[in-house]
Amino acid sequence: MALKRITSPHTHRALGTGAVMRNVVFATLPGLVVLTYFFGLGTLHNVLLASIAAMGFEAAVMKLRGRPVWFYLRDCSALVTGVLLGLALPPYCPWWLVVLGSAVAIILAKQLYGGMGFNPFNPAMVAYVVLLISFPLQMSQWAAPQDIGGQTPGIVEALKQIWLGSPIDGYTAATPLDTVKQNSSLMLDALYLQDPVLSAGQFAGAGWEWANVAFLLGGLYLLYRRIFTWHAPVAMLASLSLMAALFYDGGSSQSGGSVLFHLFSGATMLGAFFIVTDPVSSAVSTRGRLIYGAAIGVLIYVIRIWGNYPDGVAFAVLLLNFAAPFIDYYTLPRTYGHKKSERATRKVDQ
């Protein structure tokens, strides 16, 4: 009698790639809710539109490549890319910006490199940077949080703005990071009192601080579910805090802002738990991920304070994506039975 010849192991853990991705999407929900609460429907619209577009592009490319479409859509990696891009884009930005970003993320950054698992760069961050450089105006208009702008735009207004381009009056406001960056004369205390967004917040600006807290919660949930390890995000947050502490200088007009300010403004938490942890484009070993995360943290601060852009998560992540294979070469773990860890560049006598 003939039996099936199946290689060991014969048992598998239930957690599959699709489940991992769905967990990630699930973990972004608190952040999405908070963003929607403070900034209105813009972000939700972004997320939905980007997700649909990303999955659509993914399906189209799979069809072109002659692959089973549903099998690949089911892994939900395109959905994750869409959601993350949607969260990163400014609310109420034009629809074509979102669709174009999704196309760049899925087609350029992911599928042209061979699809899932083969992209050297984080697709959402590639798309974000492409849009930021190509369309700086649209990309730098953030809505004012609810507490200070009075009302967030209604559904009709929002849809008109997004799909027809009819502008809403005065819905935007400078982000906390913008404010601190532009400041050159006021002491930080004074700035906090004067600026509407900062003064309305508890420690890092109205709306922003809570969005970051929400993303932090989502990240902790993923850590709890062991979807990724703590090394990269903690290293990133630690190095960012260290940089902020080093250059805080007590709050002068030249100060870069406090540690809390940096941890809870901009895309810090989103980046730390949803971008830096992207396994495909990051370093692989534990030590490698510590270095990778720490370097991103340093770069974020550098770009925020001394660069041209108010936030630097996307650039920092992309730069370290470049460096990841290099880091991998020098951070192999010490294998059982070996005195010390080896380097991947070691010559082998074959």
Binding site: V20, D75, M116, G117
Partner: peptide, 10 residues
Amino acid sequence: MACIRCGMCA
């Protein structure tokens, strides 16, 4: 499916 280098194996 494709390896996403999640590192769970490591």
